[in-house]
Design a protein around this nucleic acid. Sequence first.
DNA 1: GGAATGCTTTGACCCAGATCAATTGAGACA
DNA 2: TGTCTCAATTGATCTGGGTCAAAGCATTCC
Lengths: 247, 247
Amino acid sequence: MIALKQPVPSNCGDCPIRNRAVCAHCDHDELVALEEIKYYRSFEAGQTIIWSGDKMNFVGSVVSGIATLTQTMEDGRTQMVGLLLPSDFVGRPGRDGAAYDVVATTDIVMCCFRKAPFEELMSKTPHIAHRLLQMTLDELDAAREWMLVLGRKTAREKIASLLSIIARRDASLAATTSGGGKVFDLPLTREAMADYLGLTLETVSRQMSALKKDGVILLEGKRHVTIPDMQRLLEEAGDDSDGGFLT
Amino acid sequence: MIALKQPVPSNCGDCPIRNRAVCAHCDHDELVALEEIKYYRSFEAGQTIIWSGDKMNFVGSVVSGIATLTQTMEDGRTQMVGLLLPSDFVGRPGRDGAAYDVVATTDIVMCCFRKAPFEELMSKTPHIAHRLLQMTLDELDAAREWMLVLGRKTAREKIASLLSIIARRDASLAATTSGGGKVFDLPLTREAMADYLGLTLETVSRQMSALKKDGVILLEGKRHVTIPDMQRLLEEAGDDSDGGFLT
DNA sequence: GGAATGCTTTGACCCAGATCAATTGAGACA
DNA sequence: TGTCTCAATTGATCTGGGTCAAAGCATTCC
């Protein structure tokens, strides 16, 4: 895959994640202060952005593209513990070492801040700290939702859950809605899906085929997914018919 | 079980969780402001403190005792998503509805604050907001650690992981260390352990028996556990020999 | 075109953990 | 002392998803 030079916002006003990232609630002055310490970094699909255990000297937001957060055991078993979509925050103020590997799944652009000045700024601008708390609480909810998926759902339900999450999150930014159905490209390989779901890639493949055979999803090629009936997918995921998920 | 009237700290200075709860970094004035809106509530073992979906009109900290956070699917499958020990925070500033059931596992005392005044106070006292962010980030790390346990560990490793977490957390407050070994009472039934680990209670029982037979743990009665060799337990849990866990 | 590479699908078989069922043990209570 | 209840153990059997193995299908690169 050719890594094209990716577009970068020229200023915060144009930024596609201006209203959802850690800077969402900042007023003009705060934004100016942030602009002073920010810089953009691009990574190609497949690149590791941060190695677990590394000293982190920056934090930042995903501007475009997708990254994953993964944990690995000594014997090689891996579990994805986070899926980072545009506007998601990376890094942990107040801690030096990275706890997880962060890997770019697609080409990705990040808006980074050196850690020390960001922490300094955070202590002075309550809007940033408050927004970060909100986002962290949301992530905690998502992580707990995922614990239910990992601990109690069947393979078929797991796949349906993942698809419905991607459809929902994708919908909130780049929704292609065609006649009631949702259409998107899977940003993950079968192996990455398996790592997210605590399954093997073979089981993922089998369940994808089964959902296709049963008409729950349509597949063109390996990645292009159409969901003709979102409600049906949610039922397959074992979720409340009226949306067990939070927002 | 007889629910004895439980002791309640007479003021924040005496409070056993003064240095670890959400109020940990508060200075004198902030503490006075908190004291004004705080009140204690006690619950007996088995009582549900909060029902998922309920309107939450308070937040608070666990002072003594243990509670669990659980999610339930329509068909009754349940997954525990949090274990609340003394100093842990309950409730979510900025959201009205409770997302999970909170159940007292032992008799428990909570230090509660009405939600609106607490949120008001939080916006004025950065120490509280900052501490809450720290605690939420810690919980997020714990949740992600747990995702690895749920997604990739064997039943035996899961049990060993749970025991080592309880031993560690218990150690930090009420450690009974006898000659290098750790001793504690399990605060959970086999069923609660199963709900935490995404297993059935039968499997939990079998693996407990197996760990006992292999000398990894000693059991007196059903709940009293001795861990003669913590290092050995960590190996059984599949963790890094030098502590894959954070903190 | 042909070979190499990487992702994906599919099949055959197996096993860890679930399910179903019976039993044990420890209070609580009358 | 017996019986009720509720947690826990243990056994027998079943099965969903893992493991191992072999193709299938695009892309890219000679």
